[in-house]
Amino acid sequence: MSEVLAYKPVLEVRDLRVSFHVREGEVQAVRGVDFHVNPGEVLGIVGESGCGKSVTAQTLMRLIPSPPSRIKSGSVRFLGEEVLLKSEKEMQQLRGSKMGMIFQDPMTSLNPTMTVGRQITENLKKHLKMSSAAAQKRAVEMLKLVGIPGAETRIHQYPHEFSGGMRQRVMIAIALSCDPALLIADEPTTALDVTIQAQILEVLNDLRGRLNTSIILITHNLGIVAGICDRVVVMYGGQVAETGTVKEIFNHPKHPYTEGLLKSLPRLDTSKDEPLIPIHGAPPDLVNPPTGCAFTPRCPYAMKICQRLDPGLIDCGGTQAARCWLNHPKVQEAKA
């Protein structure tokens, strides 16, 4: 853990731009994304489908295929080292050891022809050079750590013999087996019912506390973010729309898109007859992204300048920043 503490933050992403070349043209999936993750912190990345969340996550681990994708520019520094300059061989050593990932669907991510124990031990033998006996012992410990009962027996079972929630726990055990400094969880609870969702989040939170692992949690569910995350990055149209602590974002959203996401959530403190307010319209076409603010066509507060110029991230006080002209000092002065 001393290696982690030597660098703060654990991960720094600066001006990341990723495109996909398709028949229709260049899809600018990620357009100048900036964020960081501190040691032992849970960072939530939220936004609707197509906003660039998963592409960003897979780029961090260099998992997006090239072609059709291309990393156009940017920097991804992990533990002080530039990830984008590493060879594929170096990335293979990094993935699964210092950087782990949990994918959306454990049934398609786990190998159906191998026992779950073997899938954990192979990781340990490759990265930590453990003997078969030591790796087997560690595999049992990891299954117990993520709350799988009868771990000594279950390491000999195959993925189809586990429930959806248990398979996701196996994925977490594999990702954490080499004590990574960073765990990326890409929609880890999407295919699970709410009870199992709560259990998986409890496991992640518990492991964060015990192992001081930094976590990036990618989701479209703001309820999950409120329950486990320290800070939030709200993405829209391949860009960061807003960032701040959970308290800042939920109590005082500074971007109309964030405000819309919060208004579309059911709440316990409102009348059951009060309707949810959807965000009307559709996300921007990233083959031809707008020149100004990407949210302008759907924004109830849009001004003329929003169509012409992108405001960039504007400091809103504290740790909060939002990509919205409404937060510009001159606009605030005019409103006053």
Rank of each mutant, 00 (worst) to 15 (best):
Val27Ala: 14
Arg70Lys: 15
Pro311Lys: 11
Thr113Ile: 15
Ile45Phe: 11
Phe103Gln: 12
Gly312Tyr: 03
Leu204Trp: 00
Arg62Glu: 04
Asn251Tyr: 05
Gly312Asn: 10
Ala226Glu: 12
Val42Ser: 12
Val194Arg: 06
Thr243Trp: 08
Val234Asp: 08
Pro65Leu: 02
Asp273Gln: 13
Ala134Pro: 02
Gly40Met: 10
Pro112Tyr: 00
Met99Trp: 11
Ser271Pro: 06
Ser73Gln: 13
Leu265Trp: 08
Ser19Asn: 14
Cys178Tyr: 01
Thr190Pro: 05
Pro266Tyr: 11
Lys254Ser: 13
Ile120Phe: 05
Glu90Thr: 05
Thr153Met: 12
Asp206Met: 15
Leu79Thr: 06
Leu265Gln: 13
Glu90Gln: 15
Trp325Cys: 06
Ala29His: 00
Tyr301His: 15
Ser19Trp: 14
Gly150Thr: 09
Leu262Phe: 07
Asp206Trp: 01
Ser271Cys: 06
Ala29Phe: 03
Ala321Trp: 09
Ile155Asn: 02
Ser49Asp: 13
Ile277Lys: 14
Pro106Arg: 10
Phe35Lys: 02
Asp310Leu: 01
Met130Asp: 00
Leu261Ala: 01
Asn212Tyr: 03
Ala6Phe: 03
His252Pro: 00
Val287Glu: 05
Arg169Thr: 01
Gly312Pro: 09
Thr296Gly: 00
Gly147Glu: 01
Gly117Arg: 04
Gln104Gly: 13
Gly52Glu: 00
Leu143Met: 15
Cys299Phe: 14
Leu268Val: 13
Ala139Trp: 00
Ala302Met: 10
Asp206Tyr: 10
Gly292Trp: 07
Thr270Ile: 14
Lys125Arg: 15
Asp285Ile: 04
Cys299Leu: 14
Tyr158Gln: 05
Arg323Thr: 02
Asn288Ser: 14
Leu276Gly: 06
Tyr301Asn: 13
Ile155Pro: 01
Phe162His: 03
Leu176Trp: 01
Val30Met: 02
Asn123Cys: 15
Pro284Gly: 02
Ile45Asn: 03
Thr121Pro: 02
His36Glu: 15
Asp315Ile: 09
Pro275Val: 09
Ile215Asn: 08
Gln239Asp: 00
Val246Glu: 10
Trp325Gln: 10
Leu176Met: 15
Ile71Thr: 14
Glu3Lys: 07
Gln157Ile: 05
Ile102Tyr: 03
Cys306His: 01
Val246Pro: 06
Pro149Asn: 11
Lys254Tyr: 06
Leu84Tyr: 12
Arg169Lys: 02
Thr59Trp: 11
Leu309Thr: 12
Arg118His: 14
Val233Gln: 02
Glu259Ile: 07
Leu286Arg: 05
Val331Trp: 14
Glu41Thr: 09
Val83Thr: 08
Pro112Cys: 01
Gly238Asn: 02
Phe295Pro: 08
Phe295Thr: 04
Cys51Pro: 07
Val10His: 05
Val140Met: 07
Met235Gln: 00
Ser131Lys: 08
Glu141Gly: 08
Gly318His: 12
Ile279Glu: 06
Phe162Arg: 01
Gln307Ile: 07
Val83Pro: 04
Asn221Phe: 07
Pro149His: 11
Thr59Pro: 09
Pro284Tyr: 03
Glu248Cys: 10
Leu63Cys: 04
Pro289Cys: 07
Arg118Ile: 11
Ile64Gln: 07
